[in-house]
């Protein structure tokens, strides 16, 4: 237990020293700030673009647009940044060989996976909450309105999608070796999930739905109950990925 705690602390320190925590916070801070701002400035940006023979009329932006910018930024760029930052979480130490020393000192292999997942989860939660709070404040300041139906639930769905992504990252980094193979495999899995999301019947069971229905939720075109099954499936899949990584890593040759 002591070893687990010490290893978790070491992981946190490492993420601070190699600037990864800083990057994550900075990027999500920027997303939280720029989303309402972009929504507010969109009509002005367009009015300065003079395109021959084309008049663009844009309705006055509302706070819904601020949230849709926010969800768009996080689901696209945010997830890519998460993948880039955490894809090397295990492989980096494996290629460097530093993990062998820790394991030789008696730390269990399960503890390594759990500690790393816990650290990734904590960093994701902190940076995502930061982005959400800043977005919340700015939207209120710029649009004078912040209440959207199901807003917290919608934010929770995207958070849970992040939790799932991190579990997939853990799994792919135990399954593969080398620096980029894990990243590629994660991208491939996400690509498959995005592709099968085309079929309406599967949509309900696909974790991707958690990241694609956020606007529908706050505009009330989708109800909370419709996504409950997706939430349970995502939780199950995340646990499954974590379980696989525990099993595979126990048998992995280092």
């Amino acid at each position: 237990m002591n070893g687990l705690l010490a290893f978790t602390k070491k992981e946190f320190r490492e993420h601070i020293y190699n600037y990864k925590a800083l990057i994550l916070l900075a990027v999500f801070f920027v997303f939280g700030m720029i989303s309402p701002l972009l929504a507010k400035m969109m009509p002005e940006i367009f009015s300065h673009m003079s395109i021959e023979g084309l008049t663009i009329t844009i309705t006055e932006p509302t706070y819904i647009e601020a949230y849709s910018q926010f969800f768009k930024n996080i689901t696209q760029m945010g997830i890519i940044v998460i993948l880039l930052i955490f894809s090397g979480i295990l492989s980096r130490e494996l290629t460097r060989g530093t993990l062998i020393i820790v394991l030789a000192k008696g730390l269990s292999r399960h503890a390594v996976i759990l500690a790393k997942y816990f650290v990734a989860l904590t960093l994701w939660t902190i940076s995502y909450s930061l982005a959400a709070i800043i977005n919340f404040g700015y939207t209120f300041y710029l649009f004078g309105q912040f209440y959207a139906p199901n807003l917290l639930f919608s934010l929770f769905c995207l958070w849970l999608f992040g939790v799932f992504i991190l579990a997939v990252v853990m799994m792919t980094s135990t399954l593969t070796s080398g620096n980029y193979a894990g990243l590629l495999l994660t991208a491939a899995i996400l690509g498959i999930l995005l592709t099968i999301n085309i079929f309406p019947t599967i949509k309900k069971f696909n974790p991707v739905s958690l990241a694609s229905n956020n606007i529908a939720l706050i505009t009330n075109t989708k109800s909370v109950s419709e996504l409950l099954i997706t939430i349970w499936i995502t939780l199950a899949l995340s646990s499954f990925c974590l379980l696989i990584s525990l099993i595979v890593f126990r048998r992995k040759k280092l």
């Binding site: 190699n18 990057i23 920027v30 880039l84 894809s87 090397g88 460097r96 620096n179 980029y180």
Partner: peptide, 15 residues
Amino acid sequence: QLIGPILYFTIGKRD
């Protein structure tokens, strides 16, 4: 912008 430094620290920087 923004992505450049991230790319450097995640896939460019050598340990």
